[in-house]
Design a protein around this nucleic acid. Structure first.
Lengths: 178, 178
DNA sequence: GGGTACATGTAATCAGTTACATGATTTA
DNA sequence: TAAATCATGTAACTGATTACATGTACCC
């Protein structure tokens, strides 16, 4: 019941439960997959372990269905709500992590060939272009929904990143460093 | 001695050892910290565990100093080199992960206040601006070094990201969604 | 009513971090 | 030569993933 230290995953779960009412782990998975899961992925199994921990810490409450599948249903507690809003207010020091295998490969490309590098760059252009299109579609789908303002904002950031990445890799393909 | 499955961290270590000749874990740490560690951080302890694994898999060889500190010194093997260049060539499917606490908070900002959001946005502007400056300084330092072309290219991507983030958060601060 | 796809969960494992501990080198 | 700093390493823990297992609903 003590102040467990909360990881980013904890806040994702806490936020999802707060936002989308009483939910099962499966529900959280569905929501997360189509939103922040695009930027910050995690496995489904996490979404079973994490709510348990939060429940033990008193930030969620858990009830289990009696009949049927005996699913566990989570809901935020007063303490959870408080924890979450406190976190939202507190300053964010940690720098953005950009985990990108393409960038890693670029960094080590002196061990590759110019041809290999060009090929990498072309692939990356394609991949990022696809992602860009996907984000744009999601944006279009959410455009009407006025509950979706914040989801749209984060998507916008994603789209701009992809746009930037497309341009970057196009330049690399056109004029590879050496 | 069997084909361990290699994680991104494995390739980072493998790449660092290949690029910078025989090195200790500490050396790897130094190199990584000032380059890809900015995008893809990991703990120093990782850099002790990982080379061990790679050595067991036959991709690095490890010798230990006899006198003094008995440091372990790693060097890439033929197999390691082969594994690395194969990886560099193979297509990169995994999407970029953008792990950013600020974005997470933005996504959940309907649970916050407009004031809180504005405050978040202003902080984020500042943080990203600082990072941008840091990358620009690093770029300036490396500008002369012709060995540094690839490091410079990755830094350039970092800088563009930060630039984009600064603009994005400025817009959020100016005109917060709701 | 049998098959297929969706929904739900746990156990085992492993990657990765925190915390601790100590050795060597420089500097005052 | 003491203090401070840099260098080096490991043990213990825990977060996170993979793989497995099974239940429920739908559809042909």
């Amino acid at each position: 019941m003590e102040e467990a230290n909360l990881t980013p995953s904890s806040y994702i779960v806490l936020g999802m439960v707060s936002t989308f009412g009483p939910v099962t782990s499966y529900d959280i998975h569905q929501w997360a997959e189509n939103s922040i899961g695009h930027f910050w992925p995690f496995s489904r199994a996490q979404l079973y372990a994490e709510p348990r921990r939060l429940a033990e810490a008193g930030l969620l409450n858990e009830k289990q269905e009696q009949g049927g599948r005996r699913r566990r249903i989570y809901d935020v507690t007063k303490e959870g709500e408080a924890e979450l809003t406190a976190w939202l207010k507190e300053p964010t020091r940690a720098p953005t992590e950009i985990r990108d295998l393409g960038l890693l490969k670029l960094y080590f490309s002196q061990l590759s060939t110019e041809e290999g590098l060009t090929h990498l760059a072309e692939q990356q252009v394609e991949t990022h272009q696809q992602r860009l299109v996907m984000y744009q579609q999601l944006q279009a789908e959410l455009a009407d929904d006025d509950k979706a303002a914040f989801a749209l904002a984060t998507l916008e950031m994603g789209a701009r990143f992809e746009q930037m990445a497309v341009e970057f890799w196009q330049e690399v393909a056109r004029d590879p460093p050496s």
